[in-house]
Design a protein around this nucleic acid. Structure first.
Lengths: 398, 398
DNA sequence: CTGTTAGCGCATTCAC
DNA sequence: GTGAATGCGCTAACAG
């Protein structure tokens, strides 16, 4: 009531500035193409009107500009823009005309601000990790499922890269992003991150178990013990006892799901009464060239009859090595991979694999996240069972 | 001045509501785990105070809450949060304490709103397209480069999926997103989209030429004519005259860069005085199974001595087919692929390829976009030349 | 059906 | 060095 006239003066002043700028453009030599000109920065042309200093860019029209042009109030424009039915057709038309002629586009940020929703799901991953992940079939399946699911639910995915992979950095970037919730791709467990997020009231889910706390339920997990078990058991059934379990490693550390798969493998060996030594577990980095070198080194010195490979890229590297060195699959060596079934089906030879339904679990993750965002209590998801898909890379020994 | 007291009353009322809610939580049976409780929705507990109806969620602390707790004003809190040096150390500490105990996190949306910057680059792509793209080596290289570059520049990437691929839908989703600029992955040219965006003053770039208008410069292009030319010339030099050029097709339409590659191929044939028939161009869909079937169909009826394959996935499908049907490469048939060098190097056999430096061009795209965002005139990028990388999939005929 | 009012959370003036 | 006041653009609530 008291602020009102002041506000209006301000608007008028601003419009005037706009007008001057616009006119001024037309006086400029036409060397600069219109496109780049439109966003030309007016660093040196600050206008002062005693009321407010004008921003240095040409302003986009706001709802007020439209309102004025259409001779209505901003509320009405808002109603039109949001498809309210309570607007007289004639008025609506006038507004629409004004929108058209001014090229008005509602400011999405302001809307987000008002509504408190961004329609964005953040996918948090460390900068270096994302560059490797993109070549990984498991990530591709995850990404595809995430993108599809998010789109179906009316959300978009924001790839949030953190410079480092520790809880601290993750939390820093997360709290600085305007997403409604976050999907965290963390290679290692991070219960401290989880509790920080809880404290800040930020909805999140992880793509795998993120701590040993049984209270933490915000992830969709796989039964990796079972995965290792069925793979090893199948090989043992085919009389392979001299096998190697090849796992990726990050700075010498074995990722949690790999230790579970290892446990599964051991369980199978136990059942068959065959001793399983630590040396049967081979750590090989997950990048193509390093993997190739690792496989080479392994097979130079040892002659296992079967390989369990816990990483898609290493698996491809192994197949390349076999191709280059004339190994026949499965006659010379049997191979089982872990990962998306479609991926292993596309390889030559078709690989026997232990596969999880990533599309399903990714969908579940998004479901959980949306539930958290909406404040609905989340129902924990029981671990997903793997499926052993037998193709042509495994054969009975001898 | 006049609004002030009113505002304060409002805040006090709101805080009271918050307090009640918080206390109320503690009275609840502890069946619900604390985590899910934190975001519990109070749909049925609307409090009215005559001033404003309280939102249905427990509110996060705002700058005002912190200010009050620290016995300062919001301005000071703001100064502390933004690292202003003009704050007395003692005061700063008090504020930081309050921030800590309240678990205050500045509202990013409000900041975006105020500053007008989101730190987000939108990657716009149709929903169906993204699901296919993720398996495509070219996209993976683009994505990796984009993610790295954006991260280096302090931006994050928002994957914006449009239900459809037409200009209309693209514009709709774009204008509804709060990104500072947009990278548009459009399979077809879309000058109407470009002009709409220009009109709305939204910064954008395309990943390829998007219209026939020479004024449109917002993309990093490749010299695809040259790509087709060097590939064909190399094969002709090896005495291959019975070649096929395999291109992907979207609803029967050939993508623009493919027609340029075709032109390059024809150019080479012309130079060698060899007639080139339309029938030598084979349209095969870009998905794995369809590609495989297409290759099968082709080779059932024709016996070309060399293949130029314009699509990575189709190339893999072809190699799979050759594996399955006992074709030897390059003895039985020569193959040249188009796409990222790393990808073809990882295949077996190593494929001769015509490669572009996608990392470079993706970086350029981001550079251009950032320039547009900052209003700096954009310097057009000359088309990138391809490189023919000769590996083991091509041999002299006979 | 349309106008009026006020505030979302923050940061930025301008006073003191 | 700190407080007071106010707007960013939009929309919800309310009044008429």
């Amino acid at each position: 009531m008291v602020c009102k006239p002041f506000r209006q003066y301000y608007r008028i002043a601003k419009r005037t500035v706009n007008l001057i700028q616009t006119k001024f453009i037309n006086l400029l030599p036409s060397i600069l193409r219109p496109n780049s000109l439109k966003s030309f920065v007016w660093h040196r042309y600050h206008f002062k009107f005693g009321i407010a200093e004008e921003e240095s860019k040409i302003k986009k029209p706001t709802i007020h500009d439209v309102a004025e042009k259409a001779k209505v109030t901003p509320s009405t424009v808002s109603r039109v823009m949001n498809g309210s039915t309570l607007v007289k057709p004639k008025t609506r038309e006038r507004v629409l005309d004004a929108v058209q002629s001014l090229g008005y586009v509602p400011n999405k940020t302001a809307r987000m601000f008002k509504s408190g929703k961004s329609g964005i799901l953040g996918l948090v991953v460390s900068a270096q990790h994302i560059s490797e992940l993109i070549y990984n079939a498991g990530f591709q399946a995850l990404f595809k499922a995430l993108a599809e699911k998010a789109h179906a639910e009316g959300y978009n995915i924001l790839i949030i890269t953190s410079a480092n992979a520790d809880s601290e950095s993750f939390f820093d970037v997360i709290k600085n992003q305007a997403a409604d919730g976050f999907i965290i791709l963390s290679p290692s467990g991070s219960d401290t991150l989880a509790s920080k997020l809880d404290e800040a009231g930020i909805p999140y889910v992880f793509n795998m178990r993120y701590s040993n706390n049984p209270e933490d339920i915000y992830y969709a997990s796989y039964d990796d013990v079972e995965a290792g078990y069925v793979a090893a058991k199948y090989l043992l059934d085919l009389n392979h006892t001299d096998i190697r379990f090849i796992v990726g490693s990050i700075k010498g550390q074995v990722i949690s799901f790999n230790s579970e798969r290892m446990n599964g493998v051991m369980k199978a060996f136990d059942e068959y009464g065959i001793p399983f030594h630590e040396e049967l577990i081979i750590r090989i980095p997950g990048q193509m060239d390093e993997s190739y070198a690792g496989i080479h080194q392994l097979l130079q010195t040892q002659k296992p009859s079967a390989l369990l490979i816990s990483n898609e890229i290493t698996t491809v590297a192994a197949l390349n090595y076999f191709y280059d060195y004339g190994y026949r699959i499965p006659q010379d060596i049997s191979v089982i991979g872990f990962g998306p079934a479609e991926f292993y089906r596309k390889l030559r030879p078709n690989l026997t694999s232990v596969s999880f339904d990533i599309a399903w679990s990714s969908g579940k993750i998004v479901d959980m996240l949306l539930q958290r965002i909406e404040g609905v209590p989340v129902i924990p998801e029981p671990p997903k069972k793997p499926e052993l898909i037998i193709r042509e890379s495994t054969a009975r020994k001898g």
